[in-house]
Design a protein around this nucleic acid. Structure first.
Length: 168
DNA sequence: TTAGTGATATCC
DNA sequence: GATATCACTAAA
């Protein structure tokens, strides 16, 4: 079943680990569908999280994070790679779950390339978008919590948070 | 290990 | 206006 608004209208620390094991579904322009099981996510939570894009407050880029749960946040990293996040929680509290990897694509850049996801999805609603959504097929998996990666600019306390969730 | 790539944030 | 930075990947 397709995940609805209620799923994303929770704290990211509940939603992010819950996303692991779910199916990311992408319907292509020609009508074909790609289904990939999510194997790794990371939580970015609030202005007090020094690893979060919203750490400097609301900017043109981070404004998406302040929206309601279910909004897709896609941004370009290193000029090459699209990274896809899903905003969670209530409006005006910036938090999002970064989808880092799926079963056949081990890296956020590869993931978006495999699914042809780019900036066109930024700001759209994953519970209403006809080309991209997430399904729960009933599979339950073990979750392993780990430290987030690639955030050397964040404070030590934030780097040490176990906000990366992997399929066990 | 290093280069490539371009939007964003921050600094004149 | 400019430039430093960045949640990455592929090639070597």
């Amino acid at each position: 079943m397709k995940l609805n608004r209620k799923f994303f209208d929770r704290d990211v620390l509940e939603a992010a680990p819950d996303l692991v094991g779910k199916l990311l579904v992408r319907r292509m322009a020609d009508g074909s569908e790609i289904r990939l099981r999510i194997t790794e996510t990371e939580a970015y939570r609030g202005q007090s999280d020094t690893a979060c894009h919203a750490r400097f407050g609301r900017t043109k880029r981070s404004a998406i994070l302040y929206r309601q749960g279910g909004i897709i946040y896609v941004y370009l990293c290193y000029g090459i790679h699209w990274l896809v996040n899903i905003v969670t929680g209530p409006e005006d509290f910036p938090q999002a779950a970064l989808i880092r990897a799926c079963e056949t694509a081990d890296g956020p850049g590869k993931l978006t390339k495999a699914l042809s996801i780019d900036g066109q999805f930024n700001g759209s609603d994953i519970t209403e978008n006809p080309f991209l959504w997430i399904e729960d097929d009933g599979t339950r998996v073990d979750i392993i919590a780990d430290k987030r990666v690639g955030i050397g600019y964040a404070s030590i306390e934030d780097q040490n948070r176990l906000w990366r969730f992997k399929k066990g």
